[in-house]
Amino acid sequence: MHLISKIILRAAAAVLLSGSLAGQSVAQEGKPAKELFGGMKLPSRSDAQSFGFYSKGCMAGGVAIPTDGPTWQAMRLSRNRRWGNPQMIALIEQFSRDAVEKAGWPGLLLGDISQPRGGPMLTGHASHQIGLDADIWLTPMPQRKLSYREREDTSAISMLAKNKFLTVDPSIWTPQHARLIMLAASYPQVERVFVNPAIKKKLCDTWTGDRSALGKVRPIYGHDYHFHIRIKCPADAVGCKAQAPVPEGDGCDKSLAWWFTDEPWAKPKPDPNKKPVKPRPVVLSDLPKACAVVLAEPARPEEEATFGTDAVAFSSEQPPSAPVQSIEAIIGDEPAALANVPVPLPRPMR
């Protein structure tokens, strides 16, 4: 009888949870997804997972990189975009150390990574939604700790010449910039490094080291003030959609030459017979169904995260204070074993 009672209680709890999620989904469906995810201040208290694609998804169990480390400083703290999949955060910390030791770079200034639960952002990026993207400024870190206001107001420096089309400014660009970008591309878990076409051309023309990772460096609009690191879906990720592999070769070919023609920069010609249609905002139902659960999950306790200039990272090894049903169980997927990756541990407050 005791066993039957337990089964009944579990079934009732599952029904209540499903009903709660359904009610929340109905209430949230009319709101743009960027408002729902942009309003989250803390990550979900669950195992780390990236759901969906880089530009259409969300993140569970995100961790934050500290605002300051021995070889990095985070910028634009008010945006609250220092969160990522533990593998992304671990890579950034490793990259920052290697940049100093191997590339002669003073330290990294970190741009946007992701929101606490990923998802579409209120402003800016189309990607950065699943915790596997990170922006790194092309401005070197100063040898002093920047104030909060400096992190908000300081502008990154463009690598482009002001009076020449798609040309790197030789008075700003240095061999250290080249070594930094090529170092970022060298990690096996890095899938792409996005840069301005002029920067890609500069690397094609001048890089004399190992060129095996040069094909990962991809030209894209903008990205003359910073470069963008994208890592692969974690090996055991549930529901993470991989991007197609980069083409073979170093990318110093016709695909790069196209950027130096008129076509990429020509304004699209409007169709006089076509009525303008206002774009529909992305809503929660457009995202993977796990994202509704990510939004509904409890946040990590306040004591595990301090926002502002004394922010700390999390350790996923710390157990939650109360049991939380896994996302996989709720959406009916089989639980996936998490990859054994280093996770940043809490830093003492200073």
Rank of each mutant, 00 (worst) to 15 (best):
W105L: 09
V294E: 12
K31T: 13
P281E: 09
L203V: 01
A290T: 10
P188F: 00
P106F: 05
L180Q: 06
P288T: 11
V283M: 09
E328G: 05
V312Q: 09
A336W: 07
P142W: 03
W83H: 11
D224N: 07
R81T: 02
M1G: 10
Q143M: 03
K278H: 04
R192P: 10
V343H: 05
L9G: 11
T306A: 15
N80L: 05
G69Q: 05
V246S: 15
T306N: 14
L295E: 13
D333E: 09
D236P: 15
R45H: 15
Q94A: 06
P342D: 01
N163E: 13
V343C: 09
R149K: 15
S114I: 15
P288L: 00
D98G: 02
V294M: 09
N163C: 11
S44F: 07
P298C: 00
V341N: 04
G222A: 06
S186A: 15
G209M: 04
P348T: 08
S186L: 12
I330Q: 01
Q73T: 00
A237P: 07
V246F: 13
N85H: 15
L122R: 08
L21M: 08
I157W: 12
A244L: 14
L180G: 04
P348I: 02
R218N: 11
T206K: 04
D98N: 02
G19I: 03
P268Y: 07
G222V: 06
K274L: 02
H125D: 13
G84F: 03
G118R: 08
E35W: 02
G251E: 10
Q143W: 06
A213I: 03
I229D: 02
D68T: 08
A134G: 15
H2T: 15
G209I: 04
A103F: 11
L146S: 12
G84E: 03
Q24C: 14
C291S: 06
G23I: 06
E248S: 04
S44T: 06
E303I: 15
A184Q: 08
A313N: 04
I220H: 07
C58M: 01
P175E: 05
E328V: 09
G251W: 10
I136R: 00
L91R: 00
P70F: 01
A60G: 00
E248L: 11
Q143P: 05
A14W: 13
A257K: 09
L3M: 07
F95N: 03
F260W: 02
P281Y: 01
I130M: 00
V195F: 05
G39F: 12
V283Q: 10
I7V: 11
P140W: 00
A337M: 11
K56F: 08
L166H: 02
R144V: 08
G209L: 00
D286N: 14
D68Y: 00
L110H: 05
R10I: 09
A322D: 11
S316Y: 04
A313R: 02
